[in-house]
Amino acid sequence: MKKVIDRRLELGGDKPEFYEIFARRSSAEALTHIGSIEAPNAELAEARAWFVYDHEPWKEMCIVPTSAIIPITERGSDVKVKVV
């Protein structure tokens, strides 16, 4: 049976919902944007972010809903945070 994915439910809305991921290896480093992840809620975003970006033993990692980010230099473009 083909998977039927309820996008509103599983992705959080009509459009995919993204979270931006920031991390650093040690206190000496600055928090850096390392990527983004799609999830319907923060718990799932947290777990998915951790599992996809676990190539380093991060000292600190946090996520921010992309929708909460206000672009300044990228104002007017579709881009909120550049992917890489």
């Binding site: 439910l9 599983e10 959080g12 799932l44 947290e46 777990a47």
Partner: peptide, 17 residues
Amino acid sequence: RFHVSYSTGWIKALNKD
């Protein structure tokens, strides 16, 4: 730790329906 947040996140998402 993240194993539990994974399933918790999915429960929350499914429970909305």
